[in-house]
Simulated scan of single mutants.
Amino acid sequence: MASSSVSRLPLAVLLLVACSSTAAATSYTVGDGSGWTTGVDYTSWASSKNFKVGDNLVFNYAKGLHTVVEVSAAEYMACTAANPLGSDNSGATTVALKTPGTHYFVCSITGHCGAGMKLAMTVGGSNSPATLTPTTPTTPYTTPTTPTTTTPYTTPTTPTCSGGGGTTATPGMTPFMSYPSAAGLGSAALAGFALVWCVIVQLALL
């Protein structure tokens, strides 16, 4: 008897866990009393809910007047349903939330998505509240550049020598000596020169 009771214990535990999981699942009526129609703010409606894997979404609407189409994020933004992930138009659509992440729903009737019939909701893991994962900002990669310093170009100048009475030598040419002119001679030199000249004239007359 004792062994029989022990063997039933794991089965009882499994049943208890299964019942707990089933009881934890929640069915959400989209839009509550308003249902699935135009003119309802489904963004505000979804923001107050903690969706998790195992829950259900229930869409109530007039059959033939609306549809429930699950689409990608791009089609949700564009209000199109060219490549649906799932669709229904029965008037009472139940969607089981089987995977975590963000799910997007629209009405494919022309103009209805633009009139507000679009729902974006995030599903968290089983028995855990839905959370949005923040995006880590990335710094754009730029190749560092080494600053270059430029030295201004200057034309070299030929140094000049200043001296008393000399001339500036041009590069590539042999410098020469300059002699003082007669204007620069003293009065004694001029008198001697005049005397020599008179002697030469006298000798020529003889």
Rank of each mutant, 00 (worst) to 15 (best):
179 Y>G: 14
16 L>N: 03
176 F>P: 02
185 L>V: 14
42 Y>F: 13
55 D>Y: 10
110 T>I: 10
131 T>P: 00
113 C>M: 04
77 M>E: 12
35 G>C: 01
32 D>N: 10
57 L>A: 05
202 Q>V: 15
142 T>M: 08
84 P>V: 04
18 A>Y: 13
158 T>F: 10
100 P>H: 14
192 G>I: 08
190 L>H: 06
83 N>G: 14
49 K>Q: 14
105 F>W: 12
190 L>M: 11
29 T>S: 13
123 V>T: 08
100 P>C: 12
183 A>C: 06
84 P>K: 04
148 T>H: 00
49 K>P: 04
154 T>V: 09
87 S>T: 07
40 V>S: 07
37 T>E: 09
15 L>D: 06
181 S>W: 14
167 T>V: 07
16 L>A: 03
57 L>V: 04
118 K>A: 08
202 Q>K: 13
25 A>L: 04
154 T>L: 10
2 A>G: 12
29 T>W: 07
9 L>I: 10
181 S>K: 07
20 S>L: 07
65 L>R: 08
37 T>L: 09
145 T>P: 00
169 A>T: 05
92 A>T: 07
13 V>S: 03
47 S>D: 08
175 P>W: 15
25 A>F: 12
99 T>M: 13
184 G>D: 15
198 C>T: 05
174 T>S: 07
187 S>G: 01
64 G>C: 06
169 A>M: 09
20 S>V: 03
101 G>C: 02
77 M>S: 07
